[in-house]
Design a protein around this nucleic acid. Structure first.
Length: 728
RNA sequence: GGGCGCUUAGCUCAGUGGUAGAGCGACUCGUUUACACCGAGUAGGCCCGGGGUUCGAUCCCUCGAGCGCCCACCA
């Protein structure tokens, strides 16, 4: 019995069935594909285990899938590696807030139990998002799914750390870093968001000068004043010690404030803008990153007056010790006013650094951290771009890419979190217990050992090495993704040999520096090759009104709801159609409707053609000569469109490709050719219809894989395989 | 402070150095056995503003306005 098409296409009934068909075919795995020399490889941007599917994923994965599917149909041996990211700080915060609901916290639980809780979380939620990805129809090789906390991946991370260290590019040092009090960890510059906020500007008297500051409490850590070296007004003071009145912080809290004389050196430094304010700044080397650099240049002492809990330290003096920063600010403002040292207070707006993950105010504090030297690595990443080892699409991203690398500072890679990759750093116990006969060698005991080996032993004494409590910045491990998922550092890894480097990676612009650039220098350093040829920065999906899509703001749109309502193909087509290479697209549900109607149109075109073939054999031209016997005008139009579609996909112009398909299928094929040939009843027309339709199904398949596969499976054709592997 | 993007029909957006396009919406007509999730048609636009290049600019250059984003961060 001949299969027919139902009157309407039902995505709900079809999609799961078709996805199983594909999975069972094994064609997501390159080994199952015909062995071609040409390979085409990509790796997913691994979603956080905390995440859930949003429209940004839907767009990204759709575009990635379009390219992969087209290449697979073109005969490439394609591989798309999926996986998930442990998402250090994000996952830790998520589990912490879960604990808060249970009226407990990680400290009560202890580190070991806490890590177990996060692992439980991962088991419970980590794979949900990958299953949601499957609903989008993505043709990734699930047999190769990876997780950044897999044992093998952990080894790759350790190996990377050790190799950098051996190269001399990882060092430990006390620097003023960004510290999040809530997360109680250091964070990198990229994890600080500067938010414009209304505060106050305080004008404080410093001897003959009055200077403005937004943070009067840091006055307690001042060790100098700075002016521009060429500032005529202040030149004569440079190098002198200035005696000024300040608050006597030794006076207890419950007594009225008193002043005392302190000495502050005046230094000349180019970083001071003579035109701003009074042209003089107070220098607090411990609690401001710019000031710490001035401090270094002029060898100024640094007084840490704020600690990791966000409280004033002993060095701030008994009057302020243990106050929180805000309280200390209130107190010192009062004290300054009472002692007459406060000149005036003005309203002020400026940028305040907040933690990207929890939005608390970030404190710059001096802290002992591990850093990765960026000089040489930045050069590698720049070279990759300059020598065209990588291409950025759109290429306007080259400028930000370069600028970031040219102004880069060393990367603080250690975090004081509990969830993440522990540093392969082992610290010698404080007491040395010499081995018998080796008493003299005690001085040789190393303070730290960098080792992948668990619990290394000291050569000279019986002391233990204890692993550093710190974990690595989550992006340190992500940076290894394209080669770590293929088996690096195992030199004999078959996958690494066969599939590295990848052809392309895609993400939105938000993680260009956090992830993409870091993959480039990591890849270059560890494998000698850039980890991808093309970097495609796709558009960011915003709401219809151009606002950020966010669940907490209530502006998020759940792709799964759209899929239920319109079908996955409609979602995929609609999103593709919107894409134009701009940095943003404004999502509008109208494109979903368009996608759904288009799916219906495709369905009905084929339903018509099947009917038109009743009593006749549906067949395709067996050799190129036969194509010439068909209706040439429409065939030529289709061929032009096909080239257009292919070229645009290869250039990452998915929107143009989608529009070309839409216009041809609807307006040329359906509205014109089909309407004009309705009264004909001859083989030439039937063959033309079949040829057009099947080619359109192939061209449409990367965009709308489910409906096209479903139709193809139902067409009365002989010798057919799955559409997903038919020749493009 | 530096960089980037956008401004085209009521709405959401494509697009091109030479009569301006789509989807949705509006209106008119059409119950033709592929599709009313349709077809045929109509209305609707100083293509943000000024200046320039050009025979000709919505498109290229320049200045500006508005909106948005990124980097750096200023006391």
């Amino acid at each position: 019995m001949r299969e027919t098409l139902d009157k309407t296409y039902d995505p709900q009934k079809t999609e799961e069935k078709i996805y199983k068909l594909w999975e069972n075919s094994g064609y997501f795995t390159p080994e199952k594909l015909p062995d071609g020399k040409n390979k085409f490889v990509t790796a997913i941007a691994p979603p956080n285990i905390t995440g859930e599917l949003h429209l940004g994923h839907a767009l990204e994965l759709t575009l990635q899938d379009i390219l992969i599917r087209m290449k697979r149909m073109q005969g490439y041996k394609t591989l798309w590696i999926p996986g998930i990211d442990h998402a250090g700080i994000a996952a830790q915060n998520k589990v912490e807030s879960q604990l808060a609901k249970e009226n407990t916290n990680r400290h009560k639980l202890g580190r070991k139990k806490f890590v177990e809780r996060v692992e439980q979380w991962k088991e419970q939620y980590g794979n949900i998002i990958l299953n949601q990805f499957k609903k989008l129809g993505i043709s990734a090789d699930w047999t190769r799914s990876r997780y950044t906390m897999d044992i093998e991946y952990q080894r790759a991370v350790e190996e990377a750390f050790i190799r950098y260290y051996k190269k001399g590019w990882i060092y430990r040092g006390e620097r003023v870093i960004n510290w999040c009090i809530r997360c109680s960890t250091s964070i990198s510059n990229l994890e600080v968001n500067y938010v414009h906020e209304k505060t106050k500007l305080y004008y404080i008297k410093y001897g003959p000068f009055t200077l403005a500051t937004a943070r009067p409490e840091t006055k307690l850590g001042d060790t100098a004043l700075a002016v521009h070296p060429d500032d005529k007004r202040y030149k004569k003071y440079i190098g002198r010690d200035l005696e000024v009145d300040s608050i006597d912080s030794s006076i207890p809290k419950d007594q009225p404030p008193e002043t005392k004389k302190i000495k502050l050196k005046v230094v000349g430094d180019n970083s001071v803008d003579p035109k701003f304010g009074t042209g003089i700044i107070k220098v607090t080397p411990a609690h401001d990153i710019t000031d710490s650099e001035i401090g270094k240049r002029h060898k100024l002492p640094s007084i840490k007056i704020i600690d990791e809990r966000g409280k004033m330290t002993k060095k701030a003096g008994p009057r302020y010790e243990d106050l929180k920063v805000n309280q200390a600010r209130e107190q010192i403002v009062k004290d300054l006013q009472k002692t007459g040292l406060m000149d005036k207070i003005e309203d002020y707006e400026h940028n305040i650094g907040r933690c990207d993950r929890c939005n608390s105010v970030v404190e710059p504090i001096p802290s002992k951290q591990w850093f990765l030297k960026m000089n040489e690595l930045a050069k590698l990443a720049l070279e990759a771009l300059d020598k065209k080892e990588i291409n950025l699409h759109p290429n306007r991203w080259e400028k930000p890419y370069r600028n970031w690398l040219l102004n880069i500072r060393d990367w603080n890679i250690s975090r004081q979190l509990w969830w993440g990759h522990r540093l392969p750093v082992w610290i010698h116990e404080s007491k040395c217990v010499p081995k018998p006969g080796r008493e003299k060698d005690i001085e040789k005991c190393e303070e730290i050992k960098i080792s992948a080996e668990k619990e290394p032993k000291c050569e000279y004494c019986d002391a233990k090495f204890i692993q550093s409590e710190d974990v690595l910045d989550t992006w340190f491990s992500s940076a290894l993704w394209p080669f770590a998922v293929l088996g690096w550092p195992d030199k004999d890894s078959k996958d690494l040999k066969e599939f590295y480097p990848t052809n392309f990676i895609t993400s939105d612009r938000g993680i260009l520096f956090l992830w993409q650039v870091r993959m480039v220098f990591s890849g270059k350093f560890f494998t000698g090759k850039a980890p991808f040829k093309d970097l495609f920065i796709h558009a960011t999906v915003l709401t219809k009104d151009g606002k950020r899509m966010s669940k907490s703001l209530g502006t998020g749109i759940d792709p799964l709801v759209l899929i239920d309502k319109y079908g996955t193909d409609a979602l995929r087509f609609g999103l593709s159609y919107l894409t134009t290479g701009l940095q943003d697209v404004h999502f509008n549900e109208e494109v979903m409707l368009m996608g759904k109607k288009f799916a219906n149109k495709i369905w009905n075109i084929n339903r018509y053609i099947v009917m038109k073939h009743e009593g006749h054999t549906m067949k395709l031209p067996e050799n190129p000569e036969d194509i010439k016997k068909l209706d040439q005008k429409i065939i030529t139009e289709m061929e032009e469109m096909a080239i257009n579609v292919r070229d645009n996909i290869e250039k990452y112009n998915f929107g143009e490709a989608a529009r070309a398909l839409y216009d041809f299928v609807w307006h040329n094929f359906a509205d014109k050719y089909i309407e004009e040939t309705k009264n004909r009843d001859d083989d030439k027309t039937r063959d033309t219809l079949a040829y057009l339709s099947i080619n359109c199904l192939k061209l449409l398949h990367p965009f709308m894989p489910f409906i096209t596969e479903e139709i193809y499976q139902k067409l009365p054709l002989k010798n057919k395989s799955l559409l997903m592997v038919e020749n493009w």
